[in-house]
Amino acid sequence: MSLLEVRNISAGYGQFQALFDISLNLNEGAAIAVIGANGAGKSTLLKSIAGVVDVIFGEIIFDGESIVNLQPHERLNRGIALVPEGRRIFRSLTVDENLSIGAYSRRQGVWNRELVYEVFPMLAKLTDRRADKLSGGEQQALAIGRALMSNPRLLLLDEVSLGLAPIVVKKLYEILPRIRATGCSLIYVEQDTNQALSASEYAYCLLEGQVSLEGKPSDLSREQIASAYFGIGVNK
């Protein structure tokens, strides 16, 4: 059963349109990847799902209902959580307080502080540390943990690997299956395609605000991805 259905949306910032007629489908419990070059519209897509960017045309159906007119906090209450690009943790709050803000919506579910600390043991020792004193990897873990505290049904991960050492990225990606095991669906947005593709069942590639390629990662050839990613040799 489909949890999220994005139907032909166009979206943008003010005068600038970043997405053109994008459609996407996500089944309950699934993980999909959205890949594409810098500026392809990946982040805008996640932001329009989370409600931070206005959708100009099109529909977004979540759990059978249109959410396109809902405020970000109302979407959060229905179970959509965003891990924003650049982590954006609350710098002057402690690790523990960041998690508390994550639970601000009071959505019930399996996730609580203890489980987050169990899944991200690197945070467990740092509960009272101010978030701006954490390393990049720890901040990313905190940003994911914070989003999980709202017990999302759909977790949107924007550029988790950005600016992190490969070993740290690998560690974070190892944890993601545990999140899926709780029944949470995932959308990864990455520039670095390999991690995202190997962690997902279906993938969309964006190019200049449009879907240039979609399919199961196993069905997509390297050449196909490369041309869809960079827009070379694509017949429109």
């Binding site: 931070v52 906090h73 609350f90 002057s92 601000y104 919506s105 709202s150």
Partner: peptide, 13 residues
């Protein structure tokens, strides 16, 4: 949280 980052605070509900 709002003082640190109002946009993200909104996203947290």
């Amino acid at each position: 949280a709002t003082s640190d980052d109002p946009d993200i605070a909104r996203l947290m509900g």
